[in-house]
Design a protein around this nucleic acid. Structure first.
Lengths: 207, 207
DNA sequence: CGATAGTAGATACTCCGACTATCCATAAGA
DNA sequence: TCTTATGGATAGTCGGAGTATCTACTATCG
C-alpha cells in the first residue's frame, strides 16, 4: 500500500507519518523504485501503537521510540522485560531534583513488606523515594496503612498482569503486550481510580 | 520575605516565580511600596505545590492552575471534590479522537460490578471507554478477569483514600490533600506497579 | 550621602517538542 | 501525455514553559 492508503488505514496524516519515518519510530517501507515504497500491515500496526502510547499513554515521542526499540530489538531476555525495558519509562514529569532523606528506607520497607526484590540502583526505587519525599514536603504525613494499601494494590495488579501474560510464548508478542499493558495500564488505572473515588466520595456524602 | 528569599526557600528560580505570578498560579505578595512586595509562608507552600504537581505529577501549568483555582475557590461542596474537581484532570495525553463502540458498555459493566455510581456524561467514563477501545485496536483481547482485577484495585485504593481523608474537617486542607493525593497518587502507584511487575517477572523467570 | 545591589512589573526573546509546508525529481494512472 | 501522487530533504510553524532585558524605583552598606 502507498503512503496515502497507510494514512487512511491508520488515521494519521501523511506528514506525520513522514515525520515518524524521519525520526525512526516507523520502519521504512520496501522501496520499489527511487521514489516509491510499499507499506504493509506492520506499518499500520506500528502507527496505531505509536499513537496509543503518545495520545493515550501520554509518552513523548522520544520515550515512545526507546520503547519501540526495546520491542524491536528483543532487547531483554525473556521475562526480564518488565523489569528492564519499562524501567526506563518516565510516566510523565520533568526532573525534580529533590533530596531524598529517609525516604529510601521507607520505599525499601514497603517493597520488603510485599516481598519484592528491588535492585538498589533501580530508577524506580529512587523515583518512589522522591515521590514520598514530595508528599512529605507538602506536609502530608504518609500514613503507613495508606501506603501499604497502595503497595498491596500494586502487587495485585502485577499478579493480574502476570496471569494475563502467562502462556504467551512468542517473545515479540509478549514484549509488546507488556509494554502496552504497562503504559496504557497506568491510564486505565487512573481512570478507574477516578471513578472509584468519585463514587466513594459521593457515598460518603450521603451514606 | 523578598522574592530572592522566596526563591531560596522554595527552590524555584526568581524568573520562574515571576512567571507563575504573571500566569496567575501564585498570588501576588503584599505590596509595601510601588516596587516592593512581601511574600510569606503561603507563597512558599504554594510554590512547592506547583512544583509537585508539575514535576512529580506531570501536569501542565494550565491543568495545575485550574486545580489550584478549585482549591482556592472551595469550588465544590464538601465531599463532592474528588468527584468533580479531579474529573477535570487529564492525567497526560493529547486528545485522541477514538470512536468508542461497545466499550462504553464494558466501562459501565466494570463500574456496576464494583457498585460505582457513574454519571453518564462523566468525562472519566468516556476516557475509560476510549482506553478500552485503544487496547482493542491494538489487538489485545481485554480479558475480563484482568479488567476486574484493575477495577477492584481501584476500588481498594479509593477506600484507602477515603479512610485517609476521613476525619478532616477543614475544607481547604481536605481539598488540597485530595488533589495532591489523587495527582501524586497516580505517580506513586505507577512506581509501585513497576516495582511489583519487575519483581513478579523476575520471580516467574526463576521460580 | 552616595554607590551598589535588589525589586516589581512589563515586554521581548529563547528553546524544545511535535508537527506542517515546500520543494524536487520522479513514477503511476486516466 | 499530462495531471496527480510519492519519497525524501529542508525549512517553517506553533504552543508551552520558561529566560532576559528594561525601567523606574528602593534598600542598604560603607
Amino acid at each position: 500500500m502507498r503512503i496515502s492508503e497507510l494514512s487512511e488505514h491508520s488515521g494519521s496524516p501523511v506528514p506525520s507519518i513522514k515525520y515518524y519515518l524521519r525520526e525512526g519510530l516507523l520502519h521504512r517501507g520496501e522501496r520499489t523504485s527511487p521514489n516509491q515504497a510499499r507499506y504493509d500491515g506492520s506499518h499500520v500496526r506500528r502507527l496505531r501503537l505509536i499513537r496509543a502510547l503518545t495520545e493515550v499513554g501520554g509518552l513523548s515521542l522520544a520515550d515512545t521510540r526507546s520503547l519501540l526499540e526495546g520491542i524491536d530489538g528483543n532487547s531483554v531476555s525473556n521475562h526480564d522485560l518488565l523489569g528492564r525495558t519499562l524501567m526506563t519509562v518516565d510516566s510523565g514529569g520533568r526532573e525534580p531534583a529533590g533530596p531524598e532523606g529517609g525516604d529510601l528506607e521507607l520505599a525499601d520497607a514497603l517493597a520488603e513488606q510485599q516481598g519484592w526484590f528491588v535492585y538498589p540502583d533501580s530508577p524506580m526505587r529512587h523515583r518512589l523515594a522522591q515521590i514520598l519525599a514530595t508528599f512529605r514536603s507538602l506536609g502530608m504525613e504518609l500514613d503507613r496503612d495508606w501506603l501499604d494499601s497502595y503497595a498491596e494494590a500494586a502487587e495485585q495488579l502485577a499478579q493480574a498482569d502476570m496471569q494475563y501474560v502467562e502462556g504467551l510464548t512468542d517473545v515479540d508478542e509478549l514484549l509488546e503486550k507488556a509494554v502496552v499493558g504497562t503504559v496504557l495500564g497506568d491510564s486505565l488505572l487512573a481512570s478507574l481510580r477516578r471513578l472509584a473515588q468519585a463514587s466513594a466520595s459521593r457515598d460518603r456524602q450521603r451514606p
